[in-house]
Nucleic acid binder design. Structure first.
Length: 274
DNA sequence: GTACTTGTTGAACG
DNA sequence: TCGTTCAACAAGTA
């Protein structure tokens, strides 16, 4: 599942490879992934230069010439794959970017949840206002004080689903929210108002530490995630609780337990997470 | 055949 | 209005 570290990894690779390149054409092979509509998207993406690649939450933003932009959301199983030599599209290739220099990028997505969204100049701000995204956890301006203020807004929330709430904080999903709780030694169902000062501090430190470490390892390939070059992320061996239910805790003598919270699988160590 | 997996949306609830 | 939970979406994997 692409979360902040995975999406940021792809952003950096895209920046290196296609910033400044020109898209000759974009072909949406599966119309449902094209927004607002296949015809308009393909029309608007003819012969446009990519100025830069940005990321906000789990969204990739292609900044294009003439203040146009293209948003890419990978959702659960989306991939962007750079092909330096001509390749046949696979069964799950939903769109193909063809560059003026002959390279292509495939947008593959088994589950068809991902999308490509064209935004005309001006509608960019509207889109992000509607999204109501919370702050970026790795921004230098996101201090402990800012985090603490954020916690005060939701005193009654359970910490793990709150970490996954994109309108509260951006970019954290089901994998890293569990890892952050483990690092903090706090159970995922803990109510925010019961968190002590030192636990809040560990939450803040752990969040930054884990997201940075995972990004440095090019993300976690727990499902189908691979980077722009089709390579798996290398963070999985460092995951402490995600996908480890029934296994011994890596920190104490406990056994990792799995529960369901807000409809999502949630693993934690009942022994060292309180 | 059935259960399970997940990011986001929108509906439903209190 | 707000916070929260839950079904739905889709399709591969166990």
């Amino acid at each position: 599942m692409p979360e902040l570290p995975e999406v940021e990894t792809i952003r950096r690779q895209l920046e290196r490879e296609i910033s400044g390149a020109t898209i000759a054409q974009l072909s949406a092979r599966l119309p449902r992934i094209a927004r607002p509509a296949k015809k308009l998207l393909e029309q608007e993406m003819r012969h446009v230069r990519i100025e830069s690649i940005e990321r906000r939450a789990k969204l990739l933003i292609f900044r294009l010439a003439s203040y146009k932009s293209l948003i890419v959301h990978l959702k659960l199983t989306g991939r962007l794959l750079l092909q330096s030599r001509p390749q046949e599209p696979g069964p799950y290739t939903r769109a193909v970017f063809s560059f003026a220099d002959g390279r292509t990028i495939f947008f593959d997505d088994v589950r068809q949840f991902g999308y490509l969204l064209y935004l005309a100049p001006g509608s960019f701000e509207d889109f992000f206002l509607k999204q109501k995204l919370g702050p970026e956890p790795l921004e230098p301006t996101f201090t402990f004080h800012a985090f603490n203020q954020l916690l005060k807004k939701r005193p009654g929330a359970k910490i793990k689903p709150l970490l996954m709430d994109q309108t509260w904080i951006a970019g954290i999903g089901n994998v890293y929210s569990q890892e952050i709780c483990f690092f903090t030694k706090v159970r995922p169902m803990r109510i925010v108002r019961t968190l002590k000062e030192e636990e809040r501090r560990r939450l803040y430190d752990g969040m930054k530490k884990i997201l940075l470490a995972a990004t440095a390892k090019l993300g976690s390939s727990v499902d189908t995630y691979v980077d722009l070059y089709g390579r798996a992320g290398k963070y999985v061996p460092f995951l402490k609780v995600y996908g480890r239910a029934g296994n011994p805790c890596k920190r104490c003598a406990g056994v990792i337990r799995q529960v369901v919270m807000s409809g999502r699988g949630t693993a934690y160590c009942p022994s060292c997470q309180r």
